[in-house]
Design a protein around this nucleic acid. Structure first.
Lengths: 223, 223
DNA sequence: GGCTATTGGTGACATAGTCACAAACAGCAG
DNA sequence: CTGCTGTTTGTGACTATGTCACCAATAGCC
């Protein structure tokens, strides 16, 4: 956990806020912490506040009516939940859920304060619209990827993204399949192929990246 | 084309605007018309204004780096282009394009006016955020569909959506494949199967729906 | 050591996408 | 009308991905 008295300055897009506006944000906001693996929002559980993430990661994923799951995106420290929250407010009956992937620290901005800020501060408006825009373009890219990208390419990219400093991915085949919205067996076979090529080593519950260069090359293959 | 002096009232979400705000919107806005098949926005072609559609349909689709195409959504009369425009402003290098599917009549709101409206009018803010939210939840649904839905189900649904009053869909297999982000051959084979079952009749450049009930039932199969 | 839940492996099959063509058709010039 | 041309649709062979029904290996725990 970090010092939280000046959290606004940790958001690149909010640094240009006027003094009074920044004060309003700091005063009318509560810092909340949630433990790992908590469902922050989900079907029938819409939050009162907009969250600005100070620390940790929130994974947003969707459970289909067919029982399939897919990870939509992640919110990292320095980003806001604005749009997800907005969606919840507008459309109760949607199926995405947000889960704290790590312990999470966030600033909770009440709706009324959020609305006031949007009204009074042009920089805040820019921040909010930029967040929406980024999310929507990311979703466009995701649709493109799901519809047209080969699975080996997608898996390679996801392994790189999920790997820690020591080139390890601590996850199961099942969880990887949810990352990409595919089936566990498909992941198992792809990983076997990667292993056969000497790109990775596997153990129960983890994947170790041995040849990052080769995997990067495959991941870049947008053909 | 319709009477355009009172266009604001044709937007459900804008009917609650205060008199002065409504006047601002009406005065600072130009009514534009674009012919069918015009590209309204696209890569390297970001519009100056937010569009509020008065008449016609805009199809938003994406061209992948692989050359594949997919229809993302349509904007109908009574809806706004707000978010697509916002995206363009924020991220120049994205690949979606908006095409007038029919002749289109729209009210063009300059950015500055848009910003002022967002600042000054709570109902306008609600309208804008509702539009964003709707789009994002729709994109979530689309991801779910592309990732997990069977193609016959998706095609059945799309045929219903695209059919006119006389149960005719005036399009080619190629265009249908872009609707769903798949290959032309796949569409041809699925349509052959529908025809074999007596659900449709085919002619060059069109599909006629013969058994709407059966197609609806398949389309509803969200399993 | 033995039990149990989780995780991963495998073959057979179904569905969807790719590739390389060929056939049917519409529009048009001659 | 005839023949040419570009568009639209049909087809087979093959690859990639998803599904289903299992089984095997492993870790944690008593």
């Amino acid at each position: 956990m970090k010092n939280t008295t000046d959290w606004v300055d940790r958001f690149a897009g909010l640094s240009q806020l006027d003094g009074p506006v920044k004060d309003l944000l700091l005063k009318r906001t509560k810092i909340v912490t949630v433990p790992r693996d908590t469902m922050i929002f989900g079907p029938g559980n819409s939050p009162e506040n907009m969250l600005f993430l100070l620390d940790g990661t929130v994974r947003v994923q969707q459970v289909s009516e067919t029982g399939h799951e897919i990870v939509l995106y992640r919110i990292e420290a320095g980003e806001s939940c604005v749009l997800t929250t907005a969606c919840l407010l507008a459309y109760e009956d949607y199926s995405a859920e947000g889960i704290a992937e790590t312990a999470v620290q966030a600033a909770a901005v009440p709706r009324a304060v959020f609305d006031e800020l949007v009204s009074q501060s042009k920089p805040f408006r820019s921040f909010v619209f930029a967040a929406f825009s980024k999310r929507i373009t990311d979703l466009f890219l995701m649709i493109d990827e799901v519809a047209f990208q080969r699975l080996d390419v997608r898996l390679a990219g996801r392994l790189l993204k999920l790997s820690d400093k020591s080139n390890r991915v601590a996850t199961t085949h099942q969880k990887l399949s949810i990352e990409l919205g595919t089936a566990r067996e498909v992941i198992s076979r792809q990983l076997q192929e990667f292993q056969r090529r000497g790109w990775i080593a596997q153990a129960r519950g983890r994947v170790d990246i041995l040849d990052r260069a080769q995997i990067s090359q495959l991941a870049a293959h947008e053909t």
